[in-house]
Simulated assay, not measured.
Amino acid sequence: MTTRRAFLASLAAATATPRLGWAAVGNPSYIAAAKRPDGSYVLAGFDTKGAGLFRLPLPARGHAGAAHPQRAEAIAFARRPGYYAVVIDAVSGKALHELTPPDGRQFNGHGFYIDGGATLLTVEQLAQGSDGLIGVWDVASGYTRIGEFATHGIGPHDVRLMPDGQTLVVANGGIQTDASDRTKLNIPDMRPSLVYLSLAGDLLEEVRLDDELHQNSIRHLALREDGLVGFAMQWEGEPGMAWPLLGLHRRGAAPVLAEAPLPDELAMKGYAGSIAFSADGSEVAITSPRGGRLNRFSSEGVFLGGQRRDDVCGLAAHPEGLVASDGFGGLIVVGPDGARPLALFDDLAWDNHIVAL
C-alpha cells in the first residue's frame, strides 16, 4: 500500500518540465478510481474498447476526478469528507501537486477545470454547518488557491459548467454532516436544491423540490449539450419508499421527475449513485450499487427499462450508449438493445464514478 511518506516523496520528485498531452498515454476516454486487492488505491485510465492505459497510485480512497483538457494530468478527489486532492502526471505516474482545503473546509469529492485548464474549481463545504463552497485554484502557479464563493446551499456534491461557458449548475445535497465523518445531522430538516451560479458566484436561479420530497438529496449531475440538466437523488427519509430518483431541468422551467414502474423504482433502494446521458443525448440513466440496478429513461423522463448488475455505480457516455462499472472490476456497455460485457479488470474494484475525458 502506498504510504503517505512515499507519496509525498514522489510529489517532491516531480519536475517542472513541460508535460505531454493525452496522446502520450494512448488517448484515454475515461478515468475512474479503484481499489486493488492489497488495499491500495489507484486512478485508472481506459478507452472505449475497455483497454486499460494507465494506473496512477492514490494516497487513499478516491471518489471522482478530472482530467486537464490539454496536458496528461489527472486530479483525483478524496471521498467526502475529503482532505486531499492529488494532481498526477499520467505519463510518469508522479504526483505533481497535493491540494488540501483551507482550515475549516472539506472537499466533497468532485471538481473540474475551466478556462482551458487554467483554473480548477472544487466542490467543498464548511466542516461546521456544511455550508457549500466552490474553491477556485490557479493552475499555472502550482494550483494556488485564489478564491472561493458560496453554493447557496448546504452539503454540495457535484458541479458542472453549462454550455454557455459562463454558468455553473450545482447539486446542493441539503445534508449537514458531522465535521469528522459522514454522520447526517439534519435529516428531518433537509433542504436540497439545484442552483445556477455565475462564475463570480452570483445566484442566478434556485430550484427546490416539493415539500414531500425535501428528504430527496440532490447528489449528482449530468449535462446535455443543449443545456438539459439531469440530477440524481438519494432518498434519506423513511426506508422502503419509491420516490423518483431522477430529475430533469431546463433553466426557467419546473423540474421534471422521471418515475419508473413501482418494482423498478423499489429495486433502486432509494439510492442513485451516478447519472449520465447517452452519447446521442436521447437517453439518461441512473445506477444504484445498493440495488444492483441501472434504470434507463428517455430525455423526456419516460422509463425505458432496467438492467440488473451487482454493485453497479460508475456511468458515462459511450459511442454505443453508456458504459457502466461495478465493484468487481467489470465494465459493461448499455444500449437500446441491452447490455454487453466490455472488459473485466479482475484486480480492480471500481469506485463510484467514471469520468469521461
Rank of each mutant, 00 (worst) to 15 (best):
D211N: 15
D211A: 10
E212I: 12
L213S: 10
L213G: 15
L213M: 10
H214T: 14
Q215A: 10
Q215Y: 06
S217D: 02
I218M: 08
I218D: 02
H220Y: 04
A222C: 01
A222E: 00
L223N: 03
L223S: 13
E225K: 00
E225M: 00
E225Q: 14
D226V: 08
D226E: 07
D226M: 14
D226Y: 05
V229T: 00
G230T: 00
F231H: 12
Q234L: 12
E238P: 13
E238C: 00
P239G: 00
M241P: 11
M241G: 10
M241H: 08
A242P: 01
W243M: 14
G247R: 14
R250T: 14
R250V: 04
G252D: 05
A253E: 06
A253M: 09
A254G: 15
V256N: 11
L257S: 08
L257N: 01
L257C: 08
A258V: 01
E259C: 08
E259F: 06
P261V: 08
D264G: 09
D264Y: 05
D264W: 09
E265S: 07
L266Q: 14
A267H: 00
A267K: 01
A267F: 03
A267T: 05
M268P: 07
M268I: 03
K269L: 07
K269C: 01
Y271Q: 06
Y271A: 13
Y271E: 05
A272Q: 15
G273H: 15
S274Y: 10
S274H: 09
I275P: 07
I275L: 07
A276S: 14
S278Y: 05
S278R: 13
S278W: 00
S278G: 06
D280R: 07
G281M: 02
V284K: 13
A285Y: 14
I286Q: 05
T287K: 03
S288V: 07
S288L: 15
S288C: 03
R290L: 10
R290V: 01
R290I: 00
R290A: 14
G291P: 03
G292I: 14
R293I: 13
R293Q: 10
L294K: 01
L294P: 00
N295K: 14
N295W: 14
R296G: 03
F297L: 08
S298I: 13
S299N: 04
E300I: 03
